[in-house]
Design a protein around this nucleic acid. Structure first.
Lengths: 213, 213
DNA sequence: GAACTTTAAGACCGATCGGTCGTTCAGGTA
DNA sequence: TACCTGAACGACCGATCGGTCTTAAAGTTC
């Protein structure tokens, strides 16, 4: 019996498992990974609380799988679309703006799953924290690589520091979601967009590579 | 009997009230304003749970007062020291770096009280949310005014956009605390510092106003 | 159809949540 | 002394927390 068999029981199980995970990520983006209680999740999905334990050993396992699910979503909705833009400055901008579009589209009711998870677990040791840290490191590493590509292609000046720029681009994108949710106003997204464009404009070898305001 | 009387009972009450608030801000910086449970707080302060209700009607009132306390701390530890630097670009930098010093000094065990509160309450309606939103708006407004001062003094080019810069400076400072806590490494603070210096250097009328790297 | 596996439900557990109650005690007033 | 006020306590409340146990039902294998 292989993993790819079509055992009707396992198919059913996998479906409800995925339905639960999707709801879990949504709920966690609002209430946080800790505020994501089994009771809330159960009623939201329409499943009995004890039914969870057929799929996950305990809440922590559920949290870890929810992170995995959210990471996949992040790649699908942000990284992959942005990578349709060819390497270079354009791809750096595409990555940043794909993130802003993801926020603006309100894919998750709470705005940003990872942001909530980072703030929540940055000082609580354990596997969840480690997984969240890895997600952040991966994301920063990804930006850094895309920036480095642009440098290697000669589209950014050679002494542009990819790690430094990765920090700045992430920071300028991250703040948008909190400010939008707390203070409202579309101006925030414009500022986040403009900030990165201005920053890159100062470092690009050919201003024509950048879109106008 | 005036408010300034020295009724020993009220003096005692005020002292324990302040001791509780201080602990509350510390705990909330770690566990969040919601994870700040009365039981945890009680044992941390060494007070019985029910004793709280002599001072606060309910948990929400305690949360609101904790925010007030944290706001005062923010002013005392960051704004006031930075304002010793005279108006201009120097004060803009002083404000940003005072914040980073506040983080680096680990004044609060959880890093940043307001950051945690913002992420937690950005989508939960109620007075706590409104108070947190006000705190953010005040902080952004403060940066904006300090930037505007620098423009008016001619230290920044006239078309520098204070609101835009306020967004960027806040974002570049905010990200530091999460990254430091989650990934560690002092390089993060250096990046946050350098980011703002570079940004201002591009807009200043006199490079001598800015410190070297 | 019997044996077995997987998903899911219901009843229930001890712990903890925010909060109320009546009481005690220290400090101040008459 | 008698009385009053404010701070703080222990006991207790219903609700909910994460989690366990037993059982039923659906699907697969022989």
């Amino acid at each position: 019996m292989t993993d790819t068999s079509e055992d009707g029981r396992r198919v059913r199980g996998r479906r409800s498992r995925e339905a639960i995970l999707e709801q879990a990520v949504s709920l966690a983006s609002v209430h946080g990974l800790d505020g994501l209680t089994l009771g809330r999740l159960a009623t939201a999905v329409g499943v009995s609380k004890s039914g969870f334990f057929a799929h996950w050993r305990d809440k922590e396992q559920l949290q870890l799988d929810a992170i995995e699910w959210a990471a996949r979503q992040w790649v699908d909705e942000i990284v992959r679309p942005a990578f349709k833009t060819p390497p270079g400055v354009g791809r750096v901008i595409a990555l940043h703006e794909a993130r802003l579009r993801f926020y603006a589209a309100e894919v998750l009711p709470g705005g940003c799953f990872f942001f909530a998870a980072q703030v929540e677990f940055d000082d609580r040791p354990g596997p969840v924290r480690e997984r969240v840290a890895k997600a952040l490191a991966d994301w920063l590493g990804l930006i850094e690589r895309v920036v480095k590509e642009a440098v290697d292609l000669g589209e950014l000046v050679p002494d542009a520091d990819p790690a430094q720029l990765a920090y700045e681009i992430d920071a300028l994108g991250e703040s948008a979601i909190t400010q939008v949710r707390l203070l409202g106003g579309d101006a925030v997204y414009d500022r986040a967009r403009r900030a990165v464009r201005d920053r890159l404009r100062a470092l690009t070898t050919d201003p024509a590579l950048l879109p106008e305001d």
